[in-house]
């Protein structure tokens, strides 16, 4: 039983069985306020799945990309929940959850995947930038094939860059918690590690080394 937690955009929590059956999925779309809602959403996800914390065997953590302040809340929560139960954390690239949702949906409706076109999952990275990752289809383990790792692009430049490579743009404003957990389930079934356990900040911290001493005048 996998608990999925992602705070790379809003706050998404879900419980999914290892075979992919979704037991619960709750979320807050507020792009801020992750710390406020994270505890209650975990509680609700467990309650709606009629489970207790002790039933969870793995925690899927959305590692981003996403604005750092919010992103960290979910990763901290995922790690702490796992620590409390002595169970492993399965890191997942947050865009993978969006990609698998699009691919599964397209497979049902005969959309994008039929053409095998690469597509980019695009999310807001603030500061006039987008975060994007490029995918093409599902592999034999049922996981989305990431053909370009998460990166940042200025908002005005993204379309041209994607068009150049023939990549279709797919914007997302939420990360589906259940599909994040599904990615973890499929990774576990295949015995694969699909993401680093480091947060995908994509930016260095904003710091400016101290300037030379300013004169205060005499």
């Amino acid at each position: 039983m996998i608990l999925g937690i992602d705070t790379s955009l809003g706050t998404a929590v879900a419980v999914v069985e290892h075979d992919g059956v979704v037991r619960s999925q709750v979320e807050s779309v507020d792009p801020r306020g992750h710390a406020e809602v994270i505890g209650s959403l975990i509680e609700r996800a467990l309650a709606e799945a009629s489970l207790t914390a002790g039933d969870i065997t793995h925690v899927a953590a959305g590692m981003g990309p996403g604005p750092f302040t919010g992103l960290r809340v979910g990763i901290a929560a995922a790690r702490a929940f796992a620590l409390g139960r002595g169970i492993p954390v399965v890191p997942v690239v947050s865009h993978d959850a969006v990609a698998i949702e699009l691919l599964l949906h397209d497979a049902l409706t005969g959309g994008l995947d039929r053409d095998g076109l690469p597509f980019a999952v695009v999310t807001d990275a603030r500061r006039r930038e987008f975060a994007y990752s490029v995918y093409r289809g599902l592999d034999d383990d049922g996981l989305p094939v990431r053909i370009a790792e998460p990166a940042l692009a200025p908002r005005d430049d993204l379309d041209a860059a994607l068009a150049r490579d023939g990549v279709v743009r797919r914007d997302a404003d939420r990360v589906p918690g259940a599909l994040l957990a599904l990615c973890a389930a499929r990774a576990l079934a295949a015995g694969r590690v699909i993401a680093s356990s480091d947060a995908l900040y994509l930016r260095s911290p904003d710091v400016t080394p101290p300037a030379a001493r300013k004169r205060v005048g005499t």
Partner: peptide, 23 residues
């Protein structure tokens, strides 16, 4: 510091729920 505090708050809430203990 807000961003620093949030890390502890997120972790503490999840830990409390997973241990089923008061916070």
């Amino acid at each position: 510091l807000a961003g620093a505090l949030m890390v502890g708050v997120g972790a503490a809430k999840a830990l409390a729920v997973s241990l089923d203990r008061p916070l």
